[in-house]
Write a protein that binds this DNA or RNA. Structure first.
Lengths: 154, 154
DNA sequence: TTGTTACATTGGAATGGTTCTCATCTGTTA
DNA sequence: TAACAGATGAGAACCATTCCAATGTAACAA
């Protein structure tokens, strides 16, 4: 179970988004807020086996889809066949390892400007009314660089 | 069938990447180069029904996966459940309509710098050895803005 | 507090895009 | 031209996700 602070925070988040507060939603959101492991549905189910031993897979899917619709959570594909989820409390993007699938969160000062600029340019050029974006960077994580015997020449 | 110019170009692309030149690969690549419709496997199969009436679905999947591995083609999800493919001859990114799934190519002067900067920052922060990136922007396409009766206030 | 109602949860069945298998075929290279 | 590694094709298999119908429950009002 997540800490009381997290439980209070997530309760407020659900209310702010006018989402009906069910134990399932509350606990799943708290799990996502307090874990940065980019879990799949199965990972979440395993992680909640004590808090919600009887939760249905459909509920987890429904809940996550609802969170995605409300922009609380983003979906990620790392090539392993199933979708990964990430609580999106603060703006960031992801670096994904092309060898092992490891996902890490990345941000830097000025990233928010980069993002805004991309959205602005896109709106101008395409005429789309922009609601969001998704940025990913691919490469070999440090561990896989070693594992594969690749040396960085910098 | 694509034009002779496209057929020559794609032949060279395959050879440059040391890919065995089969009629299937040649024709699929030519299709992707000469269409900017971000097709699914089924779209491609339909589009090639005259050139390759007996092609197997597995072959199209295999071929596209090979092209993706060689960075000739990128995969796109627009939420309709199947993967879309796009020939990646020149750097660009995609704007995807959250209502109808329409995908359009976007680029602008300076985009390449934005991209390089993102990759550089990511390498510094994460330690990943970067090999590529993927950027997408979401919103309502002009048509859906009208269809949904949404007025832009700018 | 209670009743009402719209919405959420569940488990199992159904779906369908993608991968797998393996026999056959074919580019490529020597 | 021979030999072989690799590509193709048809269909079966896979499996993540969605669908469905019955049941349960959060939210709101009286």
């Amino acid at each position: 179970m997540a800490s009381n602070a997290v439980m209070e925070e997530t309760l407020q988040v659900l209310k702010d988004h006018k989402l009906r507060v069910t134990p399932q939603r509350h606990i799943i959101l708290a799990y996502l807020v307090s874990h940065h492991n980019h879990p799949t549905v199965e990972t979440i189910r395993d992680g909640l086996s004590k808090d919600l031993p009887n939760i249905g897979a459909s509920t987890i899917y429904n809940t996550l889809n609802t969170f995605v619709d409300h922009h609380l959570v983003v979906e990620l594909q790392n090539g392993d066949g199933s979708t990964h989820y990430d609580y999106f409390g603060t703006p960031h993007y992801h670096a994904i390892c092309t060898n092992c699938g490891r996902i890490v969160d990345v941000t830097y000062p000025g990233f928010s400007d980069t993002e805004k600029n991309l959205e602005k340019k896109t709106a101008e050029i395409s005429g789309y009314m922009i609601s969001g974006n998704h940025m990913e960077v691919y490469g070999l994580c440090p561990e896989c660089q070693i594992k594969l015997g690749i040396k960085k020449n910098d």
